[in-house]
């Protein structure tokens, strides 16, 4: 079953993650083939939404206006391959004041599903961290782990039974090719 909506984590899935946060557009470096993979989803008529924790805002490292500029850059990089994000959801909460939207909580995922009128069964989340998988499990949608970013470490540390079943791919390109396969 082809998904209606693909929920994408951002850092470590679309672009290279940084320990000190992506604080301006200059620090945004796309992962190889990720923009092309989003392009394939767009071409297939599948909606895409980013669901990303951006605690850098809550920590006071950058503001929402800067995040908007970073996302403009991300949209431009992706558009070069025909890729389009139908929505971008972010959660600015720092870990010490985490609300229901900060992953591993499923708030953002639920918002995205209701925006596109998709049931959990029609959605797939693609992420690189355990908390992405946990959020997807709580929201009831399928989940894919990519080994980019945190992904290899997440896999090596062992996936707890409650987040299974999970399928694992080397990167977003491989995950999307499988989703769109025969």
């Amino acid at each position: 079953m082809r998904p209606k909506l693909v929920l994408l984590d951002r850092d470590g899935v679309l672009n290279e993650d940084r320990d000190d946060f992506i604080k301006n557009p200059g620090e945004l470096i796309m992962l190889p083939d990720s923009a092309a993979a989003v392009g394939k989803l767009t071409a297939a008529g599948i909606k895409t939404a980013i669901v990303t924790n951006q605690s850098g805002i809550g920590r006071g490292l950058f503001d929402e206006a800067m995040l908007t500029r970073i996302h403009e850059q991300l949209r431009n990089e992706t558009a070069r391959f025909g890729g389009h994000y139908d929505a971008i959801f972010f959660c600015p909460d720092p870990p010490w004041a985490a609300g229901p939207n900060r992953k591993p909580e499923p708030g953002m995922l639920r918002q995205a599903m209701s925006r596109f009128r998709a049931t959990p069964g029609e959605c797939v989340l693609i992420g690189d961290s355990l908390r992405d998988l946990q959020a997807a499990q709580k929201a009831g949608c399928r989940r894919i782990l990519v080994r980019t970013g945190n992904g290899a470490k997440t896999q090596a540390q062992g996936l707890p039974p409650e987040v299974l079943p999970v399928s694992v791919y080397n990167d977003l390109g491989a995950a999307v090719d499988t989703l769109l396969g025969e």
Partner: peptide, 9 residues
């Protein structure tokens, strides 16, 4: 699920 995704999962 389709074949490849099912088998991978």
């Amino acid at each position: 699920l389709k074949r490849q995704e099912f088998m991978d999962t």
